[in-house]
Design a protein around this nucleic acid. Structure first.
Length: 140
DNA sequence: GCCAACGTTGGC
DNA sequence: GCCAACGTTGGC
């Protein structure tokens, strides 16, 4: 299983919006960046991801699961743009802030730190475990 | 609100 | 195929 990170501005699509969709999940639409799209094409059913709030909050707030593999973005009107569907698995007991991540030397290589603008990105197994521990949340 | 970093576009 | 100009994102 692979691990990922999905970034969203809470004013556009928040963790609460995601929770409200329940187990049906929701399309991760709106990505118009080739790198991010290519990562979504690599995702498999059951892969896990962090749900990250950018802008004001800047924190990992929950865990999501890929519940549909890449398909055309229904809102794009252009088959080039594909996306996966994700559903909420569980919230973080304690959100892990960008500040915490940046101050932890074990997480210095995270894409979130190195390329803050990429909205969909891979997370290593080690990074996954460290951040779940910081968030006092089960990693499985 | 500003600005740095990055991606995309289009002229040459 | 290069690179300048421009737009967007996201941290501060």
């Amino acid at each position: 299983m692979a691990y990922w990170l999905f970034k969203s501005e809470p004013s556009t699509w928040s963790w609460d919006n995601q929770i409200a969709k329940g187990d049906k999940g929701e399309e991760w639409d709106g990505v118009r960046n080739y790198q991010a799209r290519n990562f979504m094409r690599d995702m498999k059913l059951g892969d896990r991801g962090f749900f990250y709030h950018s802008q004001s909050e800047k924190a990992v707030v929950g865990i999501v699961e890929v519940c549909a593999e890449a398909h055309p973005d229904s809102k794009a009107g252009d088959p080039r743009w594909e996306c996966v569907d994700i559903k909420a698995v569980r919230p973080f007991a304690r959100p892990v802030t960008l500040e915490q991540i940046k101050s932890d030397p074990r997480l210095a290589e995270m894409v979130l730190v190195k390329n803050s603008r990429l909205s969909v990105q891979p997370v290593s197994v080690d990074e996954w475990k460290i951040i779940c521990a910081l968030g006092q949340t089960a990693a499985d």
